[in-house]
Design a protein around this nucleic acid. Sequence first.
DNA 1: ATGCCAAGAAAGTCTTGA
Length: 260
Amino acid sequence: MKIATFNINGIKARTQALLDWLAEAQPDVACLQEIKSVDEAFPREPFEALGYHIETHGMKAFNGVAILSKLPLEDVTRRLPGDDGDEQARWIEATVMGPKRPVRVCGLYLPNGNPTPGPKYEYKLAWMDRMLTRTRTLLGDEQPLVLCGDYNIIPQAEDAANPQNWLTDALYLPASRAAYQRLLNLGLTDAIRAQNPAPGTYTFWDFQAGAWERNNGIRIDHLLLSPQAADLLQGCGIDKAVRGRDRPSDHVPVWIDLDA
DNA sequence: ATGCCAAGAAAGTCTTGA
């Protein structure tokens, strides 16, 4: 079962780019972030024509997540528990019925948190605390679980080309990284990190200042695996070349292959 | 220190991103 995460930065602007990548990468499951669309406006038809079931959790203009899957999806739930007043569309879960076994998949778009300090950063930290609680509950099932998406977290210095530029940024502040580490401490495996990626391995390059041409990137899109999922891990990768195409997203797809 | 770019909402230019 190939599971990918991809912050597409606008489904309407990226429909063809996403179709092209799906056709060549052939993921069974693709978790999308920043669809920037209400559910009713998601362009379903061309993706259904490729054989994908579609579950969306969108909102007007910003944020928004979705799961595309060639395998059947069951028990789809939307919204991250813990704050009934949170209207931002950043979390969707579904059970993917793999040919060998089911996998619970969570697609997430973790808040950016800038500027710091301020209410947006407080929201990010509170959101991460809610995610910790939700993850603890999900891990109680002791089943294969994949938490994937745009975490907006640079875990370590080697995950940025110029870590000194991020010292006061919400993506790299000690409190942000500590909250991410608390997630890992529940027993999760960062799939890409587990493969000891080469220096200069990133998933995001800013549109500005020639970041792509200079490989001035950061690694902020992650797939975290429960112990039961980590035992099934057969491979993972980053489809870096997507960033060099016409009208790209600023993020690229990251994927795992599970024996499921 | 700031803009550099890009998408969306909306018809100006602002908001958001990271």
